[in-house]
């Protein structure tokens, strides 16, 4: 698929989203669709760092929540409109990403992962003690009348379609450029890549910043979606596990992997939440994650590739 073709597909997907928004089916479809698309953004963003560069980030909730709480702060302080929230949420999370990028100078492999987890908890503690954005009690958002669309559900769904398409297109572009090849080189052997003249630090900083940006973007509309945000829901461990499990299931080396993983696992969770229970669907995520990492470490795209080769 050429870049122009990919762009056309992206525009078509957004058009499809708009069409679906216009159809006015059962509101739950938009509600659930938003979550699945949000996971497309999260999984793709996580994969830029985790899949392409090989740095496993356990701190997804930190970035997601930073996006959400940046929104809350701006709503509270300036009554800022949604596009501003998304951009600022992304930028603040990108700054955090830049910070953990410098952390990679000292921390490799598992130490990096543990540090990102620690970061998430420290940030959560800070938010819990910050009364302005609701503290431990949480923050209730009163949504203004919805512009252009029939309901907030439809608007947010359409927005997430667009965000997902943009994120995937950016990830795909990176993967196919020299940056993607450089990241793959440092994933396989960082020292060797450095010796061959790959600017590893600059590439890592780029990957952590970009990954952080899109994780923040995914979190920025969250207050509008749930209207009540508390630290434990914004910093939910589920985001960390899903961000990991979805690319692992789909396959981490290509842009398609996280998309497939997010759509499959995200949809399965939404169905399981309605039909069985929300606790059980989390159990399914955990079991699927462990099964895939043990039995099919290359993910579904890896399995398909293996079958084709035969």
């Amino acid at each position: 698929m050429k870049t122009r073709g990919a762009l056309a597909v992206g525009v078509a997907v957004i058009g499809l989203g708009l069409a679906l928004a216009g159809l006015g089916v059962n509101p739950y479809v938009y509600f659930a669709g938003y979550v699945v698309l949000q996971y497309v953004v999260i999984a793709t963003a996580w994969n830029v760092l985790g899949g392409y560069a090989g740095y496993v980030n356990f701190g997804t909730p930190a970035f997601f929540a930073l996006g959400a709480y940046t929104s809350i702060f701006l709503i509270e302080a300036l009554r800022a409109p949604l596009p501003v929230l998304i951009l600022s949420g992304g930028l603040v999370a990108a700054l955090l990403g830049l910070g953990i990028g410098y952390l990679t100078l000292r921390l490799k492999g598992v130490f990096f992962s543990i540090a990102t987890f620690a970061l998430s908890v420290v940030l959560q503690t800070l938010i819990i003690n910050w009364e302005y954005v609701g503290g431990a009690k949480g923050y209730t958002l009163i949504r203004p009348p919805v512009p252009f669309f029939r309901s907030w559900g439809v608007l947010l769904f359409t927005l997430m379609v667009a965000l997902a398409v943009v994120t995937v297109l950016v990830a795909r572009t990176i993967e196919r450029s020299w940056i993607g090849r450089g990241l793959a080189a440092l994933r396989d052997d960082e020292d060797a890549a450095e010796c061959m003249g790959v600017p590893t630090l600059r590439l890592k900083l780029f990957a952590t910043t970009l990954s952080g940006f899109f994780l923040g973007v995914a979190g920025a509309p969250f207050p509008y979606y749930v209207t009540y945000v508390e630290p434990s829901s914004a910093f939910d461990l589920n985001y960390a596990v899903n961000a990991l499990a979805m690319p692992m299931i789909g396959g981490t080396t290509t842009w398609l992997g996280p998309v497939i993983g997010a759509v499959l696992l995200g949809t399965a969770q939404q169905v399981a939440t309605v039909t069985i229970s929300s606790e059980l669907n989390l159990l399914i995520v955990g079991v699927v994650l462990v099964l895939f990492v043990v039995l099919a470490p290359e993910g579904l795209t890896g399995l398909v590739r293996k079958l084709r080769r035969r």
Binding site: V56, G109, V110, A240, L282, L283, G286, L289, V290, V293
Partner: peptide
Amino acid sequence: SLRGLVFFFGVLFI
């Protein structure tokens, strides 16, 4: 290292 870490993270969650 990394896949093992993901494995244990999954076990914790389960």
